[in-house]
Design a binder for these strands. Structure first.
Ligand code: FES
Ligand code: FES
Lengths: 143, 143
DNA sequence: AATAAAATATGATAAAAATCATATTCAAGA
DNA sequence: TCTTGAATATGATTTTTATCATATTTTATT
């Protein structure tokens, strides 16, 4: 479903959302340990997220990563889309060229509803929503 | 979600269910084209399926692959389990060591229900059920 | 028994994903 | 302005997955 890279990216973003701010930037080396992802790996994943405006960053001394209010308003799916590309989640379960309602593959009819639920969820849930859940004690870290 | 190999395997099994029988065995070369999978590749995938009793086969002249009544009673998930291994579908969406209800990861609460639906579906739907759907015109091939 | 047709077993190669390493650029502070 | 600390860019390596190729075994048919 999600690539390893996407999972790592989500973990990093969530970690930043919870533990960083513009006044308290966090460096990659301080991200990698708590989320249990190799430093060089997560450093690379963060770049496209910064470029797409999902994460904020600052270079140089006292630099690091963080999320501002704007960043927090991105969906989980937007993270996945940046890392894995748009089509990974949307393509036919059986890898048919065109997955549609008219000529559904044998898995489509029964699975597409559940799958759509998942996709809608990923699309409609923002980073800030996950933050709330964690802060409310309904979801848990470390990741 | 599903590996390429699993998708191919499902396609092959379904093709056999629809087009082969003990009296009318089908050779790999005649499977590979209609399901659009390289011959050597599908040949390899069929081996573990035969070994696990999901597909039947016979060697030598007039040999080939087919499904008997018994084979038809396997679930879609059993195919995936043979090809991808048990844990692929069941592991935590965030790849946490232990995915459980007590310490759910931030994606768990909202996604686990939909995910469970998919898994239950794959587990409870047998090959013969898919065959019926295709024969009834509710699902379509070629794959 | 010999032949030939098929699956089966095994391994080699190619492509993609994951991981690791390093050089470069930018910005803060001395 | 110089130094240093950080992200950023780029590329190399490793591992996994996908794909291709071939030798071996089994079995029906002659
Ligand atoms: S999931 Fe295959 S046609 Fe929709
Ligand atoms: S899916 Fe992550 S804890 Fe259940």
């Amino acid at each position: 479903m999600l690539s390893n890279s996407s999972k790592y990216a989500i973990k990093a973003v969530l970690f930043l959302a919870l533990n960083a701010s513009e006044k308290k930037k966090v460096m990659v080396k301080d991200i990698s340990k708590p989320i249990n992802v190799p430093q060089a790996y997560i450093a690379k994943l963060l770049q496209p997220l910064v470029k797409e405006g999902i994460v904020s960053s600052a270079r140089g001394p006292r630099g690091g990563f963080y999320l501002d209010e704007n960043n927090m308003n991105h969906s989980i799916m937007s993270i996945v889309n940046v890392i894995d590309g748009e089509k990974r989640l949307k393509s036919c379960l059986m890898s048919l060229k065109k997955c549609n309602e008219e000529k559904p593959c044998p898995l489509h009819n029964e699975l597409s509803a559940s799958r759509a639920q998942i996709l809608n969820n990923l699309k409609s849930r923002m980073i800030k929503d996950l933050v709330k859940e964690v802060e409310a004690g309904n979801a848990f870290l470390p990741l």
